[in-house]
């Protein structure tokens, strides 16, 4: 078992003829992902990464029965590409693109309240169910099949923590990178709910960072609704207020909201141990599983 993606998932890659899109479509296929089509306006009838390309997502769904989209469209057009995925009623859309204008995402966010399509991202590494499928840019070789669900706002931090787990022989059910932008589709609460309802997931790692209040909301949700043990990590303890740490969302505002302390104490209050280092997170997970 796993969440959101497995070897049955039928993937259309939006932007498959671009440099990034093509490279990662090939990588996904090499990993075993069932990529069935590409969608690029004006490129219908061509082939890329060994799969047929259609002008619209709708055609890709009609012809190849795609149910999931991975979006590698440049930021200026990515908001539109997400709308296309949502309006085509796919099950899942994964937006890898970084740098989408925030106002475009506010409109997407409104649309998400009216559709059943789930969005992951944008500005995220995607997600992976080890041994079955990966959607996005994660390096497949560091993951291993197992019983830990992982959800993270940051890509490379995900890799770091996964590495710490895999090196100890602890595999993952699914790892989800939800993205570092201020407005995202699937958030911590959504991902935690998925893992809580997954029979195979026996422990959860949640990697947050400074900025916003998503981690605090997740802590409240864990307290009420999650029985699966959760270990946490929060990046940005040493970040000074008012300075953005790379991610658009990772900033402690002048009035002190979004600090690491607030997130760590909310998680601790919900019974979630928070590691000082990625190694310590792996320690907690090892303990949960023993």
């Amino acid at each position: 078992m796993s969440v959101l993606v497995d070897d049955e998932t039928r993937v259309v890659v939006q932007g498959i003829t671009g440099g990034e899109g093509k490279f990662h479509a090939e990588q996904m296929i090499e990993y075993g992902t069932n990529v069935v089509a590409g969608a690029v306006p004006g490129k219908g009838g061509q082939e890329a990464a060994g799969v047929p390309v259609y002008d619209t997502v709708d055609e890709a769904v009609e012809a190849e029965d795609a149910d999931t989209s991975v979006i590698f469209v440049p930021p200026a057009f990515a908001g539109d590409a997400i709308f296309e995925a949502l309006d085509t009623d796919l099950e899942l859309a994964v937006a890898i693109t970084e740098g989408i204008p925030t106002q475009d995402m506010a409109r997407v966010n409104k649309r998400l309240t009216e559709t059943d399509t789930r969005l992951i991202g944008p500005n995220c590494p995607g997600l992976i169910t080890p041994g079955e499928a990966k959607l996005g840019i994660l390096p497949g070789n560091i993951f291993a099949d197992g019983n830990v669900g992982l959800v993270s706002r940051s890509g490379t931090l995900t890799y770091q923590v996964v590495d710490n787990l895999t090196n100890r022989g602890i595999g993952q059910t699914t790892a989800i990178g939800i993205g570092g932008d201020p407005i995202i589709g699937t958030d911590f609460v959504d991902a935690l709910e998925l893992f809580e309802n997954d029979d195979e997931t026996e422990a959860i790692v949640m990697c947050g960072e400074i900025g916003g209040e998503d981690e605090e909301e997740a802590a409240a949700f864990i307290d009420e609704h999650v029985d699966t043990p959760v270990a946490g990590f929060i990046a940005g303890r040493t970040a000074p207020p008012g300075k953005r740490m790379g991610h658009a969302g990772a900033i402690v505002s002048g009035s002190g909201t979004g600090t690491a302390e607030s997130k760590i104490s909310a998680l601790n209050d919900a019974g979630v141990p928070v590691g000082d280092t990625p190694e310590e997170v792996a320690d907690h997970i090892e303990e949960f599983l023993s």
């Binding site: 770091q160 990590f233 040493t238 790379g246």
Partner: peptide, 10 residues
């Protein structure tokens, strides 16, 4: 990567 660099600072 922002999250990993922040973690390195921490």
């Amino acid at each position: 990567g922002a999250g990993l660099v922040m973690t390195t600072l921490d």
